[in-house]
Amino acid sequence: MVKEERVEEMAPTTKVLIQREIASSVHGRWFLAYATVFLLSGVLMVTFGMGDAAIHGYRGFARAFAAMTHLALLFVPLMALFPAVASLAEERDRGGLEFLLAQPVTFGEVFFSKWVGVGGAVTLALTLGFGTAGSVALLRGVPFGLVATLYLFVLLLAWVFVSIGFLLSVTTSSRSRATTVGILVWLTLVALGTLGLMIAFIRWGVPRPVLSVWTFANPIEAFRIGIVTLLDPDFSLLGPVGVMLLERLGTIGTALLAGSSLVLWILIPTFVAWKIFAKKL
């Protein structure tokens, strides 16, 4: 009985907090900017993809869509990172978090409502942008499953960086520091991705099994391998690790492994961030 009352009591609070978080993210300038970038890039990709599609059929179109998902590698981490840091670290810096937590709410409600709210707003921005390209891709005959899986991968990448943003927010002393470290983390992951793997493979002769771990320990590389595997497993794009995994695990197995890596990258930083946040301000 007591438990039931508690659940009933919690629901409206969480709803209020999530609504507020989404509303404040959607009203932010970054939301409109990122949605526009994705919308425009989607339209461009679709336009150029049309010519390719005339030659290669839906596969040509899929390539255009793939180019857009590659664009996601550059934009999605930052578009997820900045609002995540603003939601927690900036609000803490400005005194809003303390006042919010002084209300009849729990630390868990505030933390997870913010996480869901920021992630939800980023999902909305991505859906607006990707929706256009995805819809045209579907009309052009690209299988629904493929479009949906690619969209899912982009969302997973976004949520990875929302989680990293939350972790940095609770482990650094200010918003500016969290943002700087976040950008450095992103740059490091990008550098350790394709380029790092090539250097490790060619110059240092690191064995492929080690490189596989290296690949899937890096969410950006896991994302890249995942979408290339799904779209057009071109050996030159996949790289030595991708090729090995594709040969051993097949397309679905490799994509699942990449997806699992992204899911872990969402869960682990979120869990650690929550544990730190729960120790209180």
């Binding site: 209020v16 907090l17 400005r94 005194g95 809003g96 303390e98 006042f99 919010l100 209300q103 009849p104």
Partner: peptide, 26 residues
């Protein structure tokens, strides 16, 4: 009830602030 030294930052109208925190406090 809490009145801090530094007023909390809130993007929005005063009415929205009242509405949100009233809902949180039931």
């Amino acid at each position: 009830g809490y009145v801090p030294q530094k007023p909390p930052h809130f993007d929005g109208l005063t009415n929205e602030f009242i509405e949100m925190f009233s809902r949180l406090r039931g």
